[in-house]
Design a protein around this nucleic acid. Structure first.
Length: 236
DNA sequence: CGATTTTGACCAGCGC
DNA sequence: GCGCTGGTCAAAATCG
């Protein structure tokens, strides 16, 4: 395991731990940790401009986006911050804002690097190339409101854990997003929520700017869902 | 009565 | 091939 530490002017530090099967991202709030399950995160692929973008995103998110203002300083920023595909449906709160924004940036970068890699490279296994993010959150309730409507389709006892794992899929027709919810076996005051794939629709509980289209078209989503995604090509 | 949850059965992947 | 495990299906039960 290796640890990267990053800091921004007037911001708390955050840490990225590279572990065996995933990368762990956490800020100064110990109650909120995020896990990037696709272990192809390469921070050397990030540039200074990316971190500036992230810094902008934090500011933008806490002001114009959350208050619904239309004054948007950058043509790319609104989509990055607001895109439910990039944010994967996680509703920002004061406690998860920092980590969520980091995740959004990393997801964004990872997705497009995946897209390039997909153009020919065979997948090692089923999970590769899927958009999968896990969050570990301290919570008394297991079902955290993320703005989307979910339908439960399974429940399973998990080895080495006293708590069952619950399986949900997005109720929206045609959307293939799934999530797994389970209590942490080591500390049951924490809930681990794993999201898989990306929504192909907007959150029913969020109002978006009418004039701004989704930055990532459905073609990307279809590309992601295909396990041998070398033939789909609606993405420009 | 339609939507949702429950729950046992079934299936696929993986290691041995 | 076999057994274990995680993930999904689908019929029955429950809910609103």
């Amino acid at each position: 395991m290796s640890i990267d530490q990053f800091s921004f002017p007037q911001r708390d530090n955050f840490f990225v731990n590279h572990e065996e099967n995933h990368s762990k991202v956490h800020g100064t709030n110990p109650n909120y940790t995020a896990y990037l399950m696709n272990n192809n995160l390469d921070l050397s692929d990030f540039e200074v401009s990316d971190y500036l973008l992230l810094e902008h995103g934090l500011q933008d998110e806490s002001t114009s986006t959350l208050t619904g203002s239309n004054s948007l300083p950058s043509p790319i920023l609104p989509s990055l911050v607001d895109d439910p595909v990039v944010s994967n449906g996680i509703t920002p709160t004061s406690s998860n804002m920092q980590v969520l924004t980091i995740i959004r940036l990393i997801s964004f970068k990872t997705k497009f690097s995946n897209l390039r890699k997909c153009k020919g490279a065979a997948k090692k296994n089923k999970a590769d190339g899927r958009h999968r993010i896990a969050f570990r959150t301290k919570s008394e309730v297991e079902i955290l409101d993320d703005g989307f409507k979910w339908r439960k389709y399974g429940k399973k006892a998990v080895k080495d854990s006293p708590n069952p794992r619950n399986y949900y899929r997005c109720s929206s027709v045609g959307c293939t997003v799934k999530k797994r919810v389970e209590r942490d076996g080591e500390d049951s005051s924490y809930v681990i929520t794993t999201y898989e794939n990306v929504h192909n629709h907007e959150s029913p509980s969020v109002v978006y700017y009418n004039e701004i289209p989704l930055m990532v078209p459905n073609g990307w989503t279809l590309h992601q869902q295909s396990s041998n995604a070398s033939s789909s090509s609606s993405f420009p």
